[in-house]
């Protein structure tokens, strides 16, 4: 077993997409709570306490949404208090809270996905859809850093030539525009040179062979299989209406039958999979270190 981030990107992506999609299309507070807790726990495990501003954003905005929802949403029957002749109902607050939890959970899952997918993995994933798009994307990513470097060089030479002062607002803007203009000319010419040299090496003339950095192992298939089965069980429960909550006029939970339990259980396991993989790696590492 390897850590979650080192598994085959396709398997990891399928797992994360399934987990996030079930969260997006379900309004069951228990399931959403599980999803949010698992996502936060995994994020903290990977990053420690860094990225405080992201936590503030991902938890603050949904909380704000929950409190504000009753202000423009007049449904619900339990009136808590009245502002400006408009009722502030408990049901609307509850609905806003659940939506907020869902929003926060999805934000965390997508953030985890972004952090685990670098350009190489992106290239690998897009190859399934279209090698051309993968090529363009991966070149654009490389161009980002290339252009930042080039922009710095242009700025320095412009400044050395005395062409603009930074203290002066209008001069600074015009200087910035000139730097961008120079960068654009350079980038286009550079792109044509790249294209010519690619054609000279035979790009696009025949079948493209490629070096595959990520291979399929049994463990990837196992991860994919487990995720698919668990997701199928919880999607079945969601589709059958076992997770369907009514919020208006009164909050009403569905009966907690067998299907509900199965769906929640499957989702619990599904969302904890990254933590289990990662935790096992950490334990092994600790044990090996304590033996030294």
């Amino acid at each position: 077993m390897r850590s979650f981030a080192e598994m085959n990107p396709a398997a990891v992506t399928v797992h994360l997409l399934l987990t996030a999609c079930i969260t997006i299309f379900c309004m069951e507070p228990v399931l959403l709570g599980i999803s949010l807790c698992a996502a936060i726990a995994f994020y903290l495990m990977k990053n420690g306490t860094a990225h405080r501003s992201f936590h503030l954003f991902a938890l603050g905005v949904p909380a704000l949404f929950a409190v504000l929802n009753p202000l423009w949403n007049q449904h619900g029957s339990t009136v808590l208090f009245v502002i400006n002749h408009r009722a502030y109902t408990a049901e609307a607050l509850c609905y806003g809270g659940v939506t907020g939890i869902r929003l926060a959970a999805v934000l965390y899952w997508f953030r985890i996905f972004s952090e685990m997918t670098d350009s190489e993995k992106l290239f690998y994933l897009f190859r399934f859809l279209s090698p051309r798009i993968a090529m363009v994307l991966s070149m654009a990513i490389r161009n980002l850093t290339l252009y930042r470097e080039q922009m710095k060089k242009i700025q320095q030479s412009q400044r050395a030539l005395g062409l603009y002062r930074e203290a002066h607002l209008i001069d600074d803007v015009r200087g910035g525009a000139r730097v961008f203009s120079v960068l654009l000319t350079w980038a286009l010419e550079n792109g044509i040179i790249t294209a010519n040299s690619m054609s000279a090496r035979g790009y696009g003339t025949g079948r493209r062979t490629s070096y595959v950095t990520f291979r399929w192992h049994l463990r990837d298939a196992v991860l994919l299989g487990i995720s698919a089965i668990l997701a199928a069980v919880s999607i079945r429960a969601v589709a059958a209406g076992a997770m369907h909550w009514e919020f208006y006029p009164v909050c009403d939970a569905p009966p907690h039958g067998l299907l509900w339990t199965a769906g929640i259980g499957a989702y619990l396991l599904l969302s904890l999979l990254p933590l289990i993989y990662e935790g096992k790696e950490m334990l092994t590492w600790k044990r090996l270190r304590s033996h030294i």
């Binding site: 051309r132 090529m135 070149m139 654009a140 161009n143 252009y147 930042r148 960068l183 792109g191």
Partner: peptide, 26 residues
């Protein structure tokens, strides 16, 4: 994506797409 057809000089156009993409992302 499925509507786009093959054209002459596809490589150059493709590279310019990646150039313009990178510039607009910056």
């Amino acid at each position: 994506l499925s509507g786009f057809e093959k054209r002459e000089l596809g490589t150059r156009r493709m590279i310019l797409v990646s150039v313009m993409t990178a510039l607009s992302v910056i």
